[in-house]
Amino acid sequence: MADRPMPELLPTPAAPVPPADRIGAGVLNTFALIGGLALWGGRALVEALRPPYDVDEIVRHLYDIGWRSTPLLATSGFAIGVVLSMHTRASLERFGAEAMIPAGLAVAVVRETGPLTAALLAAGRVGAGIGAELGAMRVTEQIDALEASAVDAFKYLAVTRIVACMIAMPILTTVMNVSAVIGGFVAEHAISGMSWDLYLERAFSLIGFSDLLPSTLKTIAFGFIIGVTGSYLGFAAQRGTEGVGQAATRSVVLASVLVIISNVVLVRLIFFFYPQGGA
């Protein structure tokens, strides 16, 4: 059976508490969880920079996390593009500003919809995957087996996945953005017969570097969050298959919430550095 996670890596689970103290304990647990995640992530960043680099493992995870998520992100992006196009049409038509549809759609997608949806989808697919996989490895003693073979399991399992997430996220976001723009074009073309060249020209008419660069690069942080949450909860999985399922679900929930919350901070930060936010 699985051992307890290494004590220096994880907060010790709270002792059973009387119901009256449950709320207090809940708050404390939340703090313990956030603290644990922060330490875990911080260590991951340090370890990621320190050789040896498990390039093979990173490539393997990039395949799972990046390449195999591409169809999901591309189709979702396409659908979002179609829907956004219909919505912007509905509202812009009223002002006689149909010509603005591509630009409005592109700005919405590039600035916020693309990065956030891509991150949430990845949190679902990738976060759950990491949580479940590492959870299963914990429960079936594979992590112990790694440690016993003198391999740094944290580095080998967690850091490689976190790095792969950080690499994959901006690329997946780009895939999402591109397919959303294509989706928008298909919808627009079907309704107004607009040409691809004109569509592209208009789509990029309001987008500046300050829209594209920060919003795409911020997804590196999203990837970090997804990887850290998934691996942390996976490593912390309790014995039994139940623990594996729990690690997966909790990874998705926690990663999604943290992505959304961190997005607020990141957007504020971007506006701080690029006050015009558009131009």
Partner: peptide
């Protein structure tokens, strides 16, 4: 640990 070999009770093969 490099000097130790460990057969786990459930083998713990890497899946």
């Amino acid at each position: 640990r490099t000097g130790i070999g460990f057969l786990f009770q459930n083998a713990a093969l890497f899946d």
